[in-house]
Amino acid sequence: MNVEETKARASPREFSPKDDLPEEYRKAATRMLEFHANSEIMGAYLERPFIRKAPSLERKMAFSAKVQDEIGHGQLLYRAAESLGVKTRDEMLDDLAEGKGKFLNCFHYPLESWVETPMIAFFVDGAAMRRQATLKKSSWEPYAHAMDKICFEEGFHVKHGESILGELMNGSKKEQEMTQEAFDKWWPRILQFFGPTDDQSSHHDFAADVGLKVMTNDELRNAFLNTYLPKAKKYGLEIPDEPRIRENDDGTYDVVEDDLDWDEFFTIAKNDYEPGVGQIEGRKHAQDAVEWVRNALDEQEAIAAGGQSPQAAD
């Protein structure tokens, strides 16, 4: 199949590993999936400390389940990515450890205080789920299949995050103030979750033409704001004056792009933002620490495949 044939056939769940797809498609799909998979992993590492820091047993158990889910989502997505034949799972995981793998802007920032957890667990996950729901219609069938399972599990994450936000905003004055402060800090990053406006986005056209994604950055940002802006207000959060958000008569929103820090965004996109670099390093250490497990599994696979067990020369 060439690119034109691929574009002509593009529709939800149209292409699978059986199809002979052009390199352009396979590379674009790999880039999307690898980014998505990396984000699941890096998000999980960010939330993991809150299994320990959460203030109640219920919250600890929920965070533990959530982190386990996110790692599983990463694995599902790496599977969907490697079936494109461009990169193996090991290559993608190594690239992530070496700082070459890209992931979501929000996961480059440190997550330090409990009041910050709903910023990710409610707003970022809510934004992610809005996007992921549309990807059930992706033309790469393994991607759509992964989305079925991921969205099934993600509903709990977003509602759990909303429950924490509700609890904090109904708490003491101090808790409310701290939560508002966290919101002020995270809100611009959350708005940048959907990337630059459509006219600035470099990858959209091709990915949309071949059905990999079905909604533009602007459409997704609007859909997110339509639901989550009223929710934020309902819990008593004040929306910061900047970045300015204009509500249009047709229910859509315009975010004033110049009010957002795009230098920081693109520094993050290059994996050069300092806290993010530390978080990449942190994950690399964790990956190195369990290298012996992966080696043991590889050895076992060689034996199961009928090979010889390596000599214990070391």
């Binding site: 599983g72 694995q75 599902l76 599977r79 799972r89 299949h145 399972k149 099934f152 599990e153 599994l297 590889d298 050895e299 076992q300 696979e301 034996i303 199961a304």
Partner: peptide
């Protein structure tokens, strides 16, 4: 059919399948 897993052998494949696919549904 509900998905797939990486695993070195059948025993581990069953374990990973349990964790990834038998945990929620």
């Amino acid at each position: 059919h509900c998905g797939n897993v990486h695993a070195p052998d059948r025993e581990m494949a069953l374990l990973f399948a349990e964790v990834q696919h038998g945990r929620r549904k």
